[in-house]
Amino acid sequence: MKKDIKAVVLLPGTYSKAKRFPVVYLLHGFSGNYADWITKDPAVKNLADQYHCIIVCPDGAFASWYIDSPVNKDWMYDTYVSKELVKYIDTHFSTIKDRTGRAITGLSMGGHGALTMAIEHQKTYGAVGSMSGCVDLKPYAKDFAINQILGNYEDNPKSWADHSVVGMINQLKPGALKIIFDCGTDDFFAGINNSLHQQLLDAKIPHDYIVRPGAHTWDYWSNSINYQMLFFHRYFDKLN
């Protein structure tokens, strides 16, 4: 996109160039930025220490939806995160340069971004998560500035369907990706997450789906990230 974009990189206390570390890419939500996680949930830095991994918080702009926009080439955030940023991190830090050492997750808009990018780039990421993710864009055609990225829903409903997580399930094979996602019972995205869970069951795609009390809040995400990081740690441990 021919611009400089900031990111947060959290290194574990055990970091050294003598060892290679797994990386978790942690995405913010709509209207947020790269600093959201460390300012709104400062305890997240302890998870890098606890699980001896690198945590990278990219910037997805106010409302990029982590999509390569088909209508505006100034918005290419899928390419930025999954290709350019991954390459930069692997070049500048001591990482496991393989899908077995990479996971991606995020909240809300970032949950959508994590799942869609992991499905699109299965050679890049081995594990994926979503917290309160907007996994189906179609019901929100007038909300969250999505139409700036995809154009008006009425003009191209297929594009909206194809860019939604629920429209990408046919790209998954059983066991190809380790998947965990969750949503609070009082979250306005609860219905579409329940539906994604059912569609994955119908497609026989293994996944962990967690429903717990909570709403679309930082209290919920600050709790959720602990379980997702444990899930990723177990994935990394088994393969590396």
Score class of each variant (00 low, 15 high):
residue 1 M to C: 01
residue 6 K to H: 13
residue 7 A to E: 06
residue 11 L to E: 05
residue 15 Y to V: 03
residue 21 F to C: 12
residue 28 H to Q: 15
residue 29 G to V: 13
residue 31 S to G: 09
residue 33 N to I: 02
residue 35 A to C: 08
residue 36 D to F: 03
residue 37 W to A: 07
residue 40 K to A: 04
residue 41 D to W: 04
residue 42 P to F: 03
residue 44 V to G: 10
residue 45 K to I: 11
residue 46 N to S: 13
residue 50 Q to E: 15
residue 52 H to W: 04
residue 63 A to Y: 05
residue 68 D to P: 14
residue 71 V to Y: 07
residue 73 K to N: 15
residue 75 W to A: 03
residue 78 D to M: 09
residue 80 Y to C: 01
residue 81 V to Y: 01
residue 81 V to M: 07
residue 83 K to Y: 05
residue 83 K to G: 01
residue 84 E to S: 07
residue 84 E to P: 00
residue 84 E to L: 11
residue 84 E to R: 08
residue 87 K to M: 14
residue 89 I to P: 01
residue 89 I to R: 04
residue 89 I to M: 00
residue 90 D to E: 15
residue 93 F to T: 03
residue 96 I to T: 00
residue 97 K to N: 10
residue 98 D to S: 15
residue 98 D to G: 04
residue 100 T to H: 13
residue 103 A to M: 13
residue 105 T to A: 14
residue 106 G to H: 02
residue 107 L to K: 02
residue 108 S to M: 00
residue 110 G to T: 01
residue 111 G to E: 00
residue 112 H to A: 05
residue 114 A to D: 09
residue 118 A to S: 12
residue 119 I to D: 08
residue 120 E to M: 11
residue 120 E to V: 01
residue 120 E to G: 09
residue 120 E to W: 01
residue 122 Q to H: 11
residue 123 K to R: 11
residue 125 Y to N: 08
residue 126 G to A: 14
residue 126 G to T: 09
residue 127 A to C: 10
residue 127 A to P: 06
residue 133 G to F: 04
residue 135 V to T: 07
residue 141 A to Q: 08
residue 144 F to T: 07
residue 146 I to T: 06
residue 147 N to R: 12
residue 147 N to M: 13
residue 151 G to T: 02
residue 151 G to D: 07
residue 153 Y to C: 10
residue 154 E to M: 12
residue 155 D to T: 13
residue 158 K to H: 12
residue 159 S to P: 04
residue 161 A to D: 12
residue 163 H to M: 14
residue 166 V to K: 14
residue 168 M to S: 12
residue 168 M to Q: 15
residue 170 N to P: 06
residue 170 N to D: 15
residue 171 Q to Y: 14
residue 172 L to V: 14
residue 174 P to Q: 12
residue 175 G to Y: 02
residue 176 A to S: 14
residue 177 L to C: 11
residue 184 G to P: 06
residue 190 A to D: 00
residue 191 G to V: 02
residue 192 I to M: 15
residue 194 N to P: 09
residue 196 L to K: 02
residue 197 H to T: 08
residue 199 Q to K: 15
residue 201 L to G: 05
residue 202 D to L: 07
residue 204 K to V: 11
residue 206 P to V: 06
residue 212 R to C: 06
residue 212 R to A: 13
residue 212 R to W: 08
residue 218 W to R: 03
residue 220 Y to A: 08
residue 220 Y to Q: 04
residue 221 W to H: 11
residue 222 S to C: 06
residue 223 N to D: 11
residue 224 S to I: 00
residue 228 Q to V: 12
residue 228 Q to F: 04
residue 229 M to A: 07
residue 231 F to P: 03
residue 232 F to T: 07
residue 233 H to T: 04
residue 236 F to S: 02
residue 240 N to K: 08
